[in-house]
């Protein structure tokens, strides 16, 4: 390999170095895998003060967006969804930043009330996000989404869907799509 890439790792020294490199790489991989194998060992979050999520229908979600008269970010999540945890802090921060100009709605799907409340308590307790409960995922399907979570709808103030982002959302994508929504809304 080194002949093709410029280094001159040969003889005993080269062999020792290759062994060291592999050991380090394997070490990093084992640390990551060991963390992944630990499983959820933390204590459950305190859900005191968090009300049951209201049942949602497609019309109730669209109507709430129209009533607010603001563009909306509708994030579809579930407590059993690992990637949803990953993006939750970003959505919480964005909801705070755009509280006066964009509505943030959390659409919990195919979940149970206790688990959903536990997730909110752990990751979204103080975020200005209105969470609703879509037990069978019918709202997501009606809006044009898929069964995979997370996904995020970017919606115009009239309740129409402007864009759907499938999968985990990152800061730049969220910032870009919110900017597009705000510009379209004038």
């Amino acid at each position: 390999m080194s002949e093709h890439f410029g280094g001159r790792a040969g003889g005993d020294g080269g062999s020792r170095q290759r062994t060291r490199v592999r050991l380090i790489r394997q070490g990093i991989a084992w640390v990551v895998l060991a963390l992944a194998a630990l499983g959820a060992c933390g204590s459950p979050a305190d859900v005191t003060g968090i009300a049951d999520l209201p049942e949602a229908s497609t019309s109730s979600v669209v109507e709430s967006i129209r009533r607010a008269g603001l563009p909306a970010v509708v994030n579809v999540w579930a407590s059993w969804c690992g990637p949803c945890r990953s993006e939750a802090p970003l959505l919480a921060a964005a909801a705070g930043d755009f509280e006066s100009s964009v509505s943030f709605i959390g659409l919990n799907v195919r979940d149970s009330q206790p688990d959903a409340k536990g997730f909110i308590a752990e990751f979204l307790a103080t975020a200005p996000i209105d969470h609703v409960f879509d037990k069978d995922g019918s709202v997501v399907a009606d809006l044009g989404g898929t069964t995979g979570v997370p996904l995020t709808f970017f919606m115009n103030p009239d309740g129409s869907v402007a864009k759907i982002h499938f999968g985990v959302i990152d800061e730049r994508t969220l910032a870009l799509e919110v900017d597009e929504l705000l510009r379209a809304a004038g």
Binding site: V32, L35, A36, A37, L38, G39, A40, C41, G42, G82, P83, R85, S86, E87, A88, P89, L90, F123, G167, V168, D170, E171
Partner: peptide, 19 residues
């Protein structure tokens, strides 16, 4: 940095898109 504990949410380590 974003408040997700790698020990309690270990599978998230592999979700690189999360940052």
């Amino acid at each position: 940095g974003s408040g997700v504990n790698p020990l309690t949410s270990p599978g998230d380590i592999l979700i690189i898109r999360g940052g």
